[in-house]
Write a protein that binds this DNA or RNA. Structure first.
Lengths: 194, 194, 194, 194
DNA sequence: GATGAATGAGTTTTCATTCAT
DNA sequence: TATGAATGAAAACTCATTCAT
């Protein structure tokens, strides 16, 4: 068993270790030694794949946004009916929120980085664009009735934050009721034509 | 000019310096020396008023939640008409979000702290309670028509996150349109009786 | 009840607080604040009575040596018979060792002070002198038979360290047997004439 | 000249630097920077070999006890005649006392540590055991005549503290006279058979 | 005499980063 | 490629000492 691995695999190991540890302990509280130990490599190796700890965070942000958008897009593309596309978007958005919310917080709210200076389009914009494209597509196909798709996309996106459990009060709704209510809200807001 | 100040004032100076710097650079990236320099005092003085850096964060969290809720409550209490109470709530909520959102993020999302272990009721719960009380009051007075005030309070609270500029896309609505649209949403959701 | 006290009393309070705390926690681990709290006075007051923390240690060393020697001398002077003087010396030496040993260690072995530079005659010399005087007195009175009182005084003094419990093994002798055995050793070494 | 050294050597360097500085200035007055400067390494390196300053003290205590006992035991084992074993024990004990006494004081009397909690058998017990074994061996071989070897071992051990120069008065005996007198005392106390 | 708020140099400890092998 | 010993700047925190009141 060779101690050398293909570069891509090594990089992926480091990204995976960083992701796990950042979620578990926060970015600041995770040392590079934690990460290299987690990936089973030496400290020096890290710098063959990333310029700095910050570089790793940036790479994870990029990976995060890509992964999130891809999941939604794949779910949407899997449906041919426009109303079903909306439903799938809500359903997958719900799952993503539950799985990735902590990672998002930890990656995009760490330290003192002004998010605007990272140069990476944050998830908000990517998802908003995705929703706008979905609305535009439905409108062009005559399946939706929306005047201002840009603003509506924002509103729909904000609404999805109701999936964040930290917003819920003392008697939180069940997941299913939450998803179904949101799907209905999406359909009505999109003006799905019968 | 006396070098010694009343204890309350000194404490307030340190809280103010911490708040400013935490918002500007993040909690982890702000050193105690930054804070004491900012407050114009020596490093040692800090420990006469707080046990540790973490203690300062906790004190700021407490101050934050109190300040936020007080502003909304005062605005609501300033109105006698129930519909006007809703409008005032939205208006003041908008202003608070704009002013305090960054502070909230930085105080409650720093490091690896599990928010549940701080013992402080996070802002979400305080505001949700406030909204529920408002709805309950209006319903009792016959001015609102809401079946489930608990859940509705959550939904209204989540909607207020549309005030967060980071959610807006490339063509953000003007502040006034945003506030008015949200006020209308609140009134309709509350089922304001004519 | 006046908050001001006679100077001597205040000084004594501080010495007492210092002694207790130094024994309990060691010199280095005891802060001036501990001491002034223990004495029930303010931090500033300390410097009206002592130049520094080190000055307090020096004062306690002086107090210690004086106190120790006075107790032995008083016990010895209380007896008129020369053999009884030896016995009383051993008995009181035993009690002193048990009570004051910790204090001695902590006062004379703290930090990096070269004992020779303190300028205070350490307890060893004071006690050795005392024993030599006792032997000389007995010899002059024809009650003892010792050739070299100087060296014999040293040997007797060293023997008293058998009172230190930390020298005892797993089956330590009872206090009484220890004292009586040492008294016999003293009498024989002094060549008490029948 | 390599900047990296075998781990054992580096550890030994740090132990040596710590030992020298602790003896010279005391534990509390020696900073970690003093130690790393003394060992010619950086501050951070220290923590690759020890968990804390206290950990270094513990390691030195262990090293001390081992070293002391080994020297005595080696000296004793070098003699085949039982009386010569006693003499060698005294001679080597004298040398050890002169060389290691300050180190012992500084290592085992620092700070407020309760020696019982360190878990390390202090030198007293190790040496007392060693003496008891010697006496037992001689008795078994018919070379010594001692009733209570346990207690006698304690007394012999305590007597060796006469080697501590701080116990001597104004006209201290020469080293040779001290050693010879003590050797005689040991032989007589052991009841060496002719 | 007495106070205690204020100071700041000093301490232990951490960790991102480098580099000889 | 890969290692991990070594670095050193910087952090949190302590405490003997001062001084305006």
């Amino acid at each position: 068993m060779p101690r050398t691995k293909p570069a891509e695999e090594r990089r992926a190991d480091l990204l995976a270790a960083g992701e796990m540890l950042f979620v578990a302990k926060g970015v600041a509280a995770t040392s590079l030694e934690d990460i290299t130990n987690g990936a089973g490599v030496s400290k020096g190796l890290f710098y063959l794949y990333f310029h700095s700890k910050d570089d790793l965070v940036l790479a994870l942000q990029e990976q995060f946004t890509t992964r999130f958008a891809t999941r939604i897009r794949t779910a949407v593309d899997g449906q041919s009916d426009w109303a079903a596309k909306l439903d799938a978007c809500v359903r997958e958005g719900f799952d993503c929120f539950r799985e990735l919310h902590d990672l998002h917080e930890v990656l995009f709210r760490h330290g003192g980085h002004d998010p605007s200076e990272t140069g990476h389009q944050p998830t908000h914009a990517v998802l908003t664009d995705l929703l706008r494209e979905l609305l535009d597509g439905g409108v062009a196909a005559g399946a939706f009735d929306v005047a201002d798709t840009e603003t509506t996309a924002v509103l729909l996106y904000v609404t999805m934050h109701a999936f964040d459990p930290s917003f819920h009060g003392r008697r939180p709704p069940t997941d299913d009721r939450l998803v179904r209510a949101t799907q209905q809200l999406f359909r009505r807001t999109a003006g799905v034509t019968p």
